[in-house]
Design a binder for these strands. Sequence first.
DNA 1: CAGTGGTCTAGACCACCGT
DNA 2: CGGTGGTCTAGACCACTGC
Lengths: 254, 254
Amino acid sequence: MGTTQLESVQEPKYWHLKTVLSEALDSDFAVGEILPNERELAARFGVARATLRQALEQLELEGRLQRRRGVGTTVAPPRVGVAVSTAQHDWTGGADEAWQPIGCTTATAPAPVLAMLDVESDEPVHIVRRIRVTQGQPVAAELLYVPSASVPELSAIETSSGAARARSVVRELHRLGLDGQDRSVELGSARADDAKELDRLPGAPVLVVTTRYLAAGGTAAVSVATYRADTCRLTFGDSGDLEISHPGQERHAS
Amino acid sequence: MGTTQLESVQEPKYWHLKTVLSEALDSDFAVGEILPNERELAARFGVARATLRQALEQLELEGRLQRRRGVGTTVAPPRVGVAVSTAQHDWTGGADEAWQPIGCTTATAPAPVLAMLDVESDEPVHIVRRIRVTQGQPVAAELLYVPSASVPELSAIETSSGAARARSVVRELHRLGLDGQDRSVELGSARADDAKELDRLPGAPVLVVTTRYLAAGGTAAVSVATYRADTCRLTFGDSGDLEISHPGQERHAS
DNA sequence: CAGTGGTCTAGACCACCGT
DNA sequence: CGGTGGTCTAGACCACTGC
């Protein structure tokens, strides 16, 4: 440790900062508590605000912090587990925790979705907009692509393009039954419209869940749902619905 | 631009930049092609390098770009779909595409894992280190926590702490059979050791898949696997293994 | 209105890669 | 070694929130 600091960091400042802050969060802060503002934190740690922000970004990505412009930075509650694979709630919106139909339009599906649907590339499909609310907070925004062939009895002259029509499509779709589903999860960033529904800024990290619903030997519908990556933990229950609690992670104020 | 830009954007520069670059990627670049370096791109678009980098970060997050220090920025291939739910490959490493045991230690599990295991908090467990390789590329690094009770026949005096012991634990575990699994997916950032295995920098975005393996009425083991979020799309096949191709997304050089 | 986080700049130096 | 992306700085201004 003389001048020759072979102890030299190698570790970026923001990474070290993140570690220090993370430990402070565990020991000195309660959920919901607001942190000092960025300028003060940066000064306190002797770094530029940009560096401090890099550490905060990481912690927000990991679901430890929540930042809101004009308000401040608060300690986030543990991520909520949202069930994705329980099958029955997927297009019947269940009871308290469910999908809320917002609207419905008719247009051609984007190319990646088209590739999964059994329709001609220029054939318009019903596009149902839904959001999912858990514990009072919006956690996901979805676009559900439904070929007309999947909902043959839907009155073609249905003019309402709002929640009413959305509900009609989902109801008709439900009558088809379900043979199975293929699902994939990947990281994405929120489009402007999704961000608005999720109460986040555009570009916020989201988990994109793409589901193909199979019925009668074909693809009945395709759903592209974007979940808030900061607040959600997606759960897939192959057997039972065991909740993963996080004891030993409780945080108390100092 | 006119001095009075009533056309004022409202849209952040980096967001607009990202859109422009994204479209250019679709039309003017082939997979694997290298982009101009950051300083030149920034100059070309008339923005500071930091702003340009913000756009590139987004595109990398979405799996469109790949950046390597000392090398350059290249156009990434479409994300590879990795099956997560096929059950049989999960602790028998299958054939060509599988989990490779790297090592095995014995220690106490971290608190969140402990909460899912049926063991005393101070009871050491086997911790198997494995990596998953798909198409020649490492896609995931895993820590598999196995209580001694799950592998009773493992010779206690097994001294090797390397791949050999790891294989022994997995083999013994496999004899237990499997009643079911609970799984969750969330966003995280790579720890230093995971980052090394995944050939990424620490802090890189990863999809953390936590699996609880159920056998004989209890939790036989817990796996925490971190998948590269930039290159992976996790697939969950509830029925069949239909691959989602991306036609119409093919990119060709100009 | 004052205070917060979000965006942006124009530099500088460092760590790493290939030649 | 030169060139790349990665880190860091010290400012500035903007957009939003709440009082």
